[in-house]
Simulated assay, not measured.
Amino acid sequence: MSAATALPLRDVQLPPPPAWWPPAPGWWMVLAAVLAVVAGLWAWQAYRQRRRRRWLNTFDNAVAQAADPAAQVAAIAELLRRAARTRQPGAELLQGREWLAFLDEPGSRAFAEGDGRLLLDGAYRKQVDAEAVQRLRVLARTRFLALMAGRAR
């Protein structure tokens, strides 16, 4: 008998399949990347909400500090001009209908034909309707936020 035939041969032995835990290092990197993206998105959204609240508080405080409706109209006009300057330099210099057209959203004529017309002369009147100022405040607050956020006209 030869030495080669004397050795008993066994079938191929496969190693046991890998366990599902702990995952391979590549899966840890994928998990870390996903968590980083989720944390980044959450932080970005929280930053945007804080910034939005700050802008709205600035608007509300400035209007609330005004003594009478005419002063409130003046404060609203000043805030809108400042916001317009941040959105488009030179827009704060517009006057009359051009200014109201700039403030209008596409498809809207709320400033040019509605309560927004109070911005043109409301700060110079002796008597200003408080309800009209309140409607203007709601309209201007929305537009102020849109201008500060840099959303397209």
Score class of each variant (00 low, 15 high):
R50I: 06
L14D: 10
A149D: 12
Y47R: 11
D115S: 11
V63W: 01
L31Y: 00
A101Q: 15
Q127P: 00
R51W: 09
V63T: 03
R85Q: 06
D121P: 01
L79A: 06
A62T: 12
P23D: 15
R141P: 14
I76T: 02
A101I: 10
P89D: 14
L41W: 03
L79T: 00
K126F: 01
P18A: 07
R81K: 13
A149F: 02
A70S: 15
A75W: 00
A123V: 00
M148C: 11
L35Y: 00
F59Y: 15
W42S: 12
G107L: 06
F59E: 06
R137D: 12
E98A: 15
T58F: 01
L41C: 11
A62E: 14
T142D: 11
A33W: 05
A101D: 15
D115P: 00
P18Q: 03
E92F: 01
R85W: 06
R53S: 13
G122N: 06
L94A: 07
V138S: 12
A123M: 08
L94M: 11
L94I: 07
A46Q: 15
Y47V: 04
P17R: 03
V133C: 05
L93W: 09
L79E: 00
P17L: 07
W28L: 15
D11F: 01
D68N: 15
S2E: 12
A43G: 11
N61H: 11
R135Q: 10
W28H: 13
L120W: 07
Q13I: 15
M1G: 14
Q95F: 04
R141H: 09
P106I: 02
V128L: 09
F59Q: 05
V133K: 00
L120C: 03
M1P: 04
A149M: 10
